[in-house]
Design a binder for these strands. Structure first.
Length: 305
DNA sequence: ACCCAGGCATTGG
DNA sequence: CCAATGCATGGG
C-alpha cells in the first residue's frame, strides 16, 4: 500500500462542497461517491488497480485549490497524473461557469438558484458505461428506489478496497455485469427488462474495441444516434449520458418528469407542458441547458424549489 | 388495493 | 410530432 499526494486547481468560481455534494445527491454517500466532513472520496479504477482518492478543499470559491491524496497501488508519477486527471474530470474542475451565469442573469427565477448555488460545477461519471447503467437504473422509478438499486449493484459487482475499517467500491466493470445472469440481477431489484438492458450495455462496452467509450469526438447528435441503438436507451437516457459522461453543456432531457414539473412550477404557474413545449422553452438557456437543469435539480433536491 | 415515480418500445393517429 | 398502452417494482 502506497500513498501519494497532489493538488488540483479548478477553474473559479468553484464551490467544492456543492460540487461534491451534487455527486452524492446531497446525501453523504451515493454509490461509489461519498462526502464526509469536507472530504470527498472515490475509489478509482486505474486499469485494474484500485486507488482511493480523498479530496478536500484548501482554497476558496474564487481561488479554488484541492488537496488530493491517493491510497493504493500507486507506483509511478504517471499513475498519479492519471489519477489526478480523473479526479479533476469527476468534479468538473475545468468547467467555465461564467458564460452560463451571464445567460442566467436574464432569467430572474434561474438567477435566484445560481446565486444560491454559486460555484457549483457539474460532476461527471468516470465512463460512458457507468453513465448508461446508472441512467437505466434511474428510469421511471422514485429517486429513493433508484438509489437503493444503484447502491446494491455497485456493492455486489464493483471492485472493492477496504482501508482503515472502511469499505470502498468502484463502479462495476462491464465483464462483471455481463458475468451476472438476469436472475442474479433481478435479486438486486432490477426488473427483467432492466436486467436485460444492463447486460446488453455491458456486452456493447466489451465489444468492438471500446466503441462505447470512444464518443468524445462526436457531436451531440451523433452520440444520440449511436447510444439510442442500444436497447433500453431512449432520448432521456441519451441526454443523461451526454451531460454526465461527456460533459456536453447543452444536452437536455426534455422528457424528464421532475424537470417538467420544476419548469412548469417556476415558469408556468403549474400548467402542464408537453416535451415539445419544454424543449422550446429551454432554448433561452442554450448552449448551457445542462447547467440550468443541474441547478434546477439542485434546488429541488435541497428543498429550495 | 391503488397510484405514482427524474422511461422505454411499440403502435396508431 | 403527440398520445395511449403494456411493462415493472418499491414507496406512500
Amino acid at each position: 500500500m502506497e500513498m501519494a499526494e497532489t493538488s488540483i486547481k479548478p477553474r473559479a468560481p468553484f464551490d467544492f462542497e456543492l460540487t461534491a455534494g451534487y455527486h452524492t445527491y446531497f446525501r453523504g454517500r451515493y454509490g461509489t461517491d461519498s462526502l464526509d466532513q469536507g472530504v470527498y472520496r472515490r475509489l478509482l479504477d486505474l486499469g485494474g488497480r484500485q486507488v482511493l482518492a480523498s479530496v478536500r478543499s484548501v482554497g476558496s470559491i474564487e481561488a479554488p485549490e484541492l488537496a488530493v491524496e491517493f491510497l493504493g497501488e500507486v507506483v509511478s508519477s504517471a499513475d498519479v497524473a492519471a489519477a489526478a486527471q480523473q479526479v479533476a474530470w469527476l468534479l468538473g474542475a475545468d468547467q467555465d461557469l461564467s458564460p452560463f451565469y451571464q445567460i442566467a442573469r436574464e432569467d430572474p427565477a434561474l438567477c435566484q438558484v445560481t446565486s444560491r448555488f454559486y460555484g457549483m460545477h457539474l460532476p461527471l461519471t468516470a465512463s460512458v458505461f457507468e453513465a448508461l447503467v446508472l441512467a437505466i437504473l434511474g428510469q421511471q422509478v422514485a429517486t429513493a428506489v433508484a438509489r437503493m438499486v444503484r447502491t446494491l449493484l455497485i456493492e455486489t459487482y464493483g471492485p472493492v478496497l477496504s482501508l482503515n475499517g472502511e469499505t470502498h467500491y468502484a463502479f462495476p466493470r462491464p465483464h462483471s455485469l455481463l458475468a451476472a445472469t438476469v436472475e442474479d440481477l433481478r435479486l438486486l431489484k432490477l426488473s427483467q427488462r432492466k436486467a436485460e438492458y444492463v447486460r446488453g450495455i455491458a456486452e456493447a462496452a466489451l465489444d468492438g474495441a471500446g466503441r462505447l467509450e470512444n464518443l468524445h469526438g462526436l457531436s451531440d447528435e451523433e452520440v444520440v444516434e449511436r447510444v439510442t441503438q442500444l436497447l433500453g436507451v431512449g432520448h432521456w437516457t441519451a441526454q443523461w449520458v451526454l451531460v454526465r459522461a461527456l460533459g456536453r453543456t447543452d444536452a437536455f432531457p426534455s422528457g424528464d418528469l421532475a424537470l417538467q414539473r420544476a419548469i412548469s412550477q417556476m415558469y408556468f404557474d403549474g400548467e402542464k407542458l408537453t416535451a415539445g413545449q419544454i424543449e422550446e422553452f429551454s432554448r433561452r438557456w442554450s448552449p448551457y441547458r445542462a447547467y440550468a437543469t443541474a441547478y434546477l435539480f439542485t434546488a429541488l433536491r435541497t428543498g429550495m424549489a
